[in-house]
Each structure stands twice: as C-alpha cells, then as structure tokens.
Design a protein around this nucleic acid. Structure first.
Lengths: 165, 165
DNA sequence: CATAATAGGACAGCTTTGTTGACATTCCAA
DNA sequence: TTGGAATGTCAACAAAGCTGTCCTATTATG
C-alpha cells in the first residue's frame, strides 16, 4: 500500500505514483468524452460543438468573448462552430442592447434538446462513477481537479459553480 | 454544503452537482496538458507525439498494436507520428525476436530526454495539486477517475499500474 | 506445402478543429 | 469628431484525427 493510499501526513510522491495519476487522467478523460462523442458522430457535429452548446447552456446570454475565455480557443475557431449551430437553429445570437458590438448567445428549443441528450449521457457515466467511488472519494476528486487548474480557469470554474446556488 | 461534500451515506446527485464535475474535468484537463503543450509548441511536435513518447516510456518494448490499444487511434494516425519520431531519432523500432512481424518500440537517449522534460512539467503540476489537496483527496481522485474509465481502458490502466510494483 | 491470418507500412483523400491574417463594425475617450 | 480599442466575421492554412486500399513479411493452420 502506497503512502498516497495510506493517507499519511507527508506525501512521498514518486514519479511512478505521479505517472499513474497522469494515466488515470488520460484514460478517464477518454471515458468522460466517449458517450457524447458517440452520439455526435451520428450527426454532423463534433466535440467542439458539444463544448460550445454545453457552456451556452450553463451561462445563457454569455458573449462570444466570454465563451472564448472559457473554452480556450481562438475566436476564429469558435466562430466556425457557432456559425453552423446558428445556421442549424440550435443557437440564437442576439446583438447586445447596451453594447451593440457584443453578441449574446442562447440555446433555442432544439439546442436545449440536444444539450440535454448529450449531457444526460455524460452525467449518467459520472453518476455511476460517483456512486461506485463514494462521497468521500468524490470530494477528493473535485479537490484535486480544482488544484490542477490554471488559476485563470479556476476563477472561471468558481464563477460557474457560484452561479448555481 | 452539498450532500456530496458532506459525505453522507446516500448520494443525492443533482444535475448541477454532476455538471460541476464535468466542468472540473474539462478545466483540469486543460491544466493537465497545458505545460507539455507549451513546451511542444516550440518544436515541430504536438500532443500526439507526446502521448506516443509517454506510453513508450511507460512500457518500453511495447508493440505498435499495443500502443494502438492504449492510445485509441488508428494505426494510420499513429504511424504518421511514429514515423517522424523514428526519423528524428527519438524512438527506436526493433524487429521482434520471437515474432519477427512485430516491432518493439523504445526511446532513444534523445527520446528519453524529451520525455523527461515533458513529464517533469506535467508531474510538477500534479505534485503541486496532490500536495494542495492532501492524501485522502488523492485517493478519492484516483478512485473516481478509475470508475469513470471504460472497462477496456481500466484493464489497460491496471496493467500499467501493476507493472511498476 | 498451400493458404489464411496477423503485424505492420505506405499512400490517397477527407473531416474536424485548431491556427494566423485581414477586415468590418461599434464604442469610447482625447 | 476622430482615432484607437474592442468585438466579431471571413479566408486560408496546419495538425491530427478518420476511412479505404494495397503492399510486404511473417506466422499459423489446413
């Protein structure tokens, strides 16, 4: 039994133990995206569309710039994805009232339906994992993930979290 | 304080709580890949090269087929990456002794140097996150990640884990 | 031994999703 | 009021995934 598992005061972290964490992240992330990817592969959309839809659902009315910060891609890359989503009637892009340079993004009814379908698949897996691992493990899981984020992203994460009290 | 944080017996998992888990995965994975990506962007390599190098380092002598299972890409895709790595003298591909159809993959000295450079950056972040979160959180972190993997990948993960006792 | 199956390499072409560069519109402040 | 900053769009290109096909070498099997 390793020090990490034992929960001792001091963490003796060997490269092996840290490497196992890397592998766990890699394999788990593949599982994390597998279900939505499977659904999306039957349509003309990819993971980038999912991410955009997801975060618009989480922050209705967000601007392009806001979404860019969250997603960490260039606006040109995001624009292509958003354009198809708007064309296909899944996302509504409204000119800002106070600042007409901004576009505020909303899901249409169809967009919300797709979002739910994708998120349900992802949540089902997460729910199963949470149940299998137990509440204490979940708390630790979130704690480590939070500590792993870049400070800028951690702020984004906190903002999203706090917006749903 | 939510049920999850509280560590009660039953997990009442709302969509919000599961959604926060999704966001945490997304943001943390970005952090997880950020440091190696930064290093790689200064060379002619990308994340695909990193993954190949990483898993060759973890399983020296692994075959192409093995690596394909681990990475979950097509052989054409992997071949392109591997070819450049062999050409550039970072990876050594040796014909199998018992089965001469197989190629066994090893890192050269240069390959190992690059691998260490990339992994060190990644491990530094993971080490910091582990320290910040504490040993119990780390155990939970791993437990949830493991539960989130596809069964096939979980086997791969276990194999790698067990190979380093 | 003949043939089938396996491991891998190479080539062509396509899709998704990232990138940089140039440009239009809108707002704001000197 | 005008020039710069901010916001978003269009065009072209690059990385890295994919399918499909064909090829060689080797091994396994009838």
């Amino acid at each position: 039994m390793s020090e990490v598992q034992g929960g001792g005061e001091l963490l003796f972290l060997t490269d092996e133990q840290l490497g196992q964490g890397s592998e766990a992240m890699f394999f788990a992330y593949r599982g994390f995206t597998a279900d939505p990817d499977r659904i999306l592969s039957t349509m003309a959309y990819g993971r980038a569309h999912h991410r955009a839809i997801y975060f618009i659902a989480r922050s209705p009315g967000t601007t392009i710039n806001n979404l860019l910060l969250t997603l960490g891609v260039t606006k040109q890359s995001l624009n292509r994805v958003l354009r198809t989503l708007v064309e296909d009637g899944l996302v509504d892009s409204r000119v800002g009232k106070s600042d007409r340079r901004e576009r505020h993004l909303f899901l249409t009814q169809d967009g919300a339906t797709l979002e739910r379908k994708l998120s349900d698949a992802q949540r089902a897996r997460m729910r199963a994992a949470y149940r299998a691992a137990g509440p204490e493990a979940v708390a630790g899981f979130r704690k480590v993930l939070e500590a792993m984020m870049d400070p800028e992203l951690r702020r984004q994460y906190q903002t999203l979290k706090d917006s749903e009290i």
